[in-house]
Simulated scan of single mutants.
Amino acid sequence: MTEKTHPYVGMWVTDDNHVRHELLPNGRYDEARGLRESAYQGRYEIKGNHIEYWDDTGFTADGDFVDEDTLHHGGMVLRRVRDRR
């Protein structure tokens, strides 16, 4: 499955909403921290339940999807934001 149709595409946030991590359908991500929008941007790849990140500044990171609504990344727990329409 490609990133364009991957089921993990979408917005992920910490419980306090401080970190907002959006996995875009084009294989890129955009992460906001507090009041700082687009604090980190780069590309990502998902294999199984594992995600690898390459920030545009050269920083790398990874994470694991525990289930369809929970992502462990960089010592944080992020939850999927479901469309409320």
Rank of each mutant, 00 (worst) to 15 (best):
G48Q: 08
G48S: 09
E37G: 03
G58T: 00
L35Q: 14
E45M: 13
H72I: 15
E68W: 00
Y8I: 07
D64G: 05
E31A: 12
K47M: 03
L71A: 04
W54R: 11
E52G: 10
D69N: 15
R36G: 09
I51Y: 02
E3M: 09
G75C: 00
G74W: 02
P25G: 15
L78H: 07
G42L: 03
H50L: 10
Y44V: 05
D16M: 00
G75M: 00
S38L: 10
R84M: 02
T57S: 14
T2C: 08
L35M: 15
A39T: 05
T60A: 00
D64R: 13
K47F: 01
T14I: 06
E52Q: 15
D83Q: 12
T60N: 01
Y53A: 04
N26P: 09
K47N: 09
A32I: 04
E22H: 15
L35C: 08
K4F: 08
D64Y: 10
F65C: 13
H73T: 11
A39Q: 05
V66T: 06
A39H: 09
T70R: 06
F59R: 05
T2Q: 06
E22F: 07
F59T: 02
H18F: 15
G34R: 01
R80S: 05
T70H: 01
D67K: 00
E31V: 11
W12D: 08
A39K: 04
W12V: 13
M76Q: 09
A32P: 03
Y40G: 06
D67L: 05
I46K: 05
G63L: 03
H6Y: 05
F59I: 10
K4I: 07
E22S: 07
E3L: 10
H72W: 07
V19F: 12
M1K: 07
M76K: 08
V81R: 12
M11N: 06
D55Q: 12
L71N: 10
G34N: 02
E3V: 12
R84E: 04
D64P: 02
G58S: 00
E68P: 01
R85P: 14
W12E: 11
R28A: 04
Q41S: 06
E45Y: 05
M1W: 08
Q41A: 09
